[in-house]
Design a protein around this nucleic acid. Structure first.
Lengths: 339, 339
DNA sequence: ATGAAAGCGCTAACAT
DNA sequence: ATGTTAGCGCTTTCAT
């Protein structure tokens, strides 16, 4: 018998009412104690705390959020893929800022799928998050306008929104790419292979534009034969490098649109012991292992997330000034100067 | 006047009641339509949908969760640091499984701080998550027992819980380390430097034990002078390697407790053009850039998160069988065979 | 300083 | 097939 009753029976979770009964006070007094309202007798405070601890009471945030109307102390971050270090750096920085505001972070991956992105945004809005941070997968975000009007702050990172005016934090993609390519040109390179992910991605278009601008300004011109887009991973980057090196008039340098492309390119060069130079967007921890001349177009990769989160929490706190556009500058990091 | 009233006024969010009025039906009919209850006249279904779309109604999940009692369709993952690729791989895999269950993921970093870990767990429980996945930072988790009895499933990953019996998914740290070191011994290495993060971390103790077992079994014995623990990042790993190589009777090989240590060690060897061999836990994307003989003690780094999440959702679905202990095997990956 | 009553937005139980 | 009533666990009036 005893064993039966003490066995795994889903013990009902104690509510404030249970605590009130146990402590011999009213429900409201419990609420006051839980919320550290100073207008409660010390005696009551103590007995409530005792009851809380005995019963294992834990306030139901769901109920609190519903009644008090507004803040769920939760924000949502929509990115492409948490496994990619670029995005996990953003998530990590956002989470840190959120913690300072006693807010939890829901991370959701869109997997570059606009439909999935929309779905995930709906789910986040249904949960009444206090705000949204979005690395847009590129569709129209007009459907968020109504939510924003209802007071849900939305901040875009890394890529601007489409069909919507909202706070946005971007990198200086054009400037970074331009100065990286200018550096290659200054070192005498004239044939620079361009390795980019899909040009449907805003950052890739911008980086290509910056690179092109440098080439044009220097009078070298832009050779379409040296461009490979839709390079999604290191393996494809390696193949692209291999193909270009095996072709006519191979490049003497490569511009890599992101760090995974840089790793793939460096691997192929290492395999061939080829001396081509590399200039690449995004730093990565193992960059020092590259034996070729390597110039990184770098930036503080936590700053993107941090700045965006800061803007978001300013909005959550009530700031209704017009949308902010922040552009983070990049710098050249000469990882390996001699090849 | 018109401009004033249409200006940014926090439009109240429409409720089911508003929809009901707009559609000329009862609240409950709206609820039925929203929940796709088939017992509603087509005519009503249509007018409700119309009202929903005109008003921009979005069901309040907070209210639904409160009333229907149980599932918030949210789970929590507590890790050390989202910026570390080891953890972001876990988070990514968990998120994928969660999405299959139409569940969102709250990620929270403990930053290796037991107090923070506890805080974060409290906050997650207050939000009534459907379940918890924890990479424990190493304190006593007995306080979770009451929650588990109340039906909140908890699964531990990468490290076992303390003071609690619960589902746990681990890597074969001992076996992996042992076979890695055995391989080095078979290649003739007798002085193997050991680079590990803090030995307060379960995985580090296990990996050390495995390495030690291989050394003892082979009759080489364990030399404390070759052990460096508390190696937290690549920089410290580089320094440790430098110090050992500059000392008496330097190692001819290094055992690296994780991938960040491996990167630091490889960097130092590359700087010196030193031929020491490396054997390292965890694969990393840039491992191919290492020029030394490199053997990786690898595993499917998404599997840890995936398996743990699968167990969790089985529990959420009601499985009350006794706690499961899953151990994932490792394999040796010979990244660079000739040095 | 404390408590009683109402109600957040929704769903469950029970009519009709 | 539809509506009415009650109530999830809490906070917010408003009394006392």
């Amino acid at each position: 018998m005893g064993r039966l009753t003490t066995a795994v029976e889903a013990t009902r979770r104690p509510t404030m009412n249970d605590v009130a009964k146990a402590a011999g006070v009213s429900l409201k007094t419990v609420s006051r104690v839980i919320n550290a309202d100073p207008t409660v007798q010390r005696e009551y405070v103590e007995s409530v705390h005792a009851a809380v601890s005995i019963l294992g009471f834990r306030r139901n945030e769901i109920a609190r959020t519903l009644r008090s109307g507004q803040t769920s102390s939760t924000i949502g971050l929509v990115i492409e893929d948490l496994a990619n270090p670029f995005y996990s750096a953003i998530a990590s920085a956002v989470e840190r800022v959120a913690a300072e505001h006693r807010t939890l972070l829901i991370t959701a991956s869109s997997e570059e799928n606009p439909d999935r992105e929309r779905e995930v945004l709906q789910e986040l809005l249904q949960r009444r998050v206090d705000g949204l941070l979005i690395v847009p997968a590129g569709v129209d975000h007009g459907f968020l306008r109504a939510e924003m009007a209802r007071g849900v702050p939305v901040v875009f990172l890394d890529r601007p929104p489409t069909g919507l005016d909202a706070d946005t934090v971007l990198l200086d993609n054009v400037g970074g790419a331009r100065s990286g390519v200018e550096y290659m040109l200054a070192r005498g390179h004239r044939r620079i292979g361009m390795l980019l992910d899909s040009l449907t991605i805003f950052t890739m278009r911008e980086r290509l534009a910056g690179a092109r601008a440098a080439l044009m300004q220097c009078g070298v011109g832009f050779d379409d034969a040296l461009l490979r887009d839709d390079v999604h991973d290191p393996g494809q980057a390696s193949s692209a490098v291999a193909a270009m090196l095996d072709g006519h008039a191979p490049p003497t340098a490569f511009f890599c649109g992101n760090n995974r492309i840089a790793i793939g390119a460096a691997l192929e060069l290492a395999r061939r012991d080829h001396p081509a130079a590399l200039v690449a967007f995004d730093d990565f921890e193992a960059s020092g292992l590259v034996h070729n001349l390597l110039t990184i177009i770098g930036y503080d990769n936590q700053e993107l997330g941090r700045r965006a989160a800061e803007v978001l929490f300013r909005r959550v706190a009530g700031d209704r000034s017009s949308p902010e556009r922040i552009m983070l500058s990049t710098d050249l990091r000469h990882v390996r100067v001699t090849s």
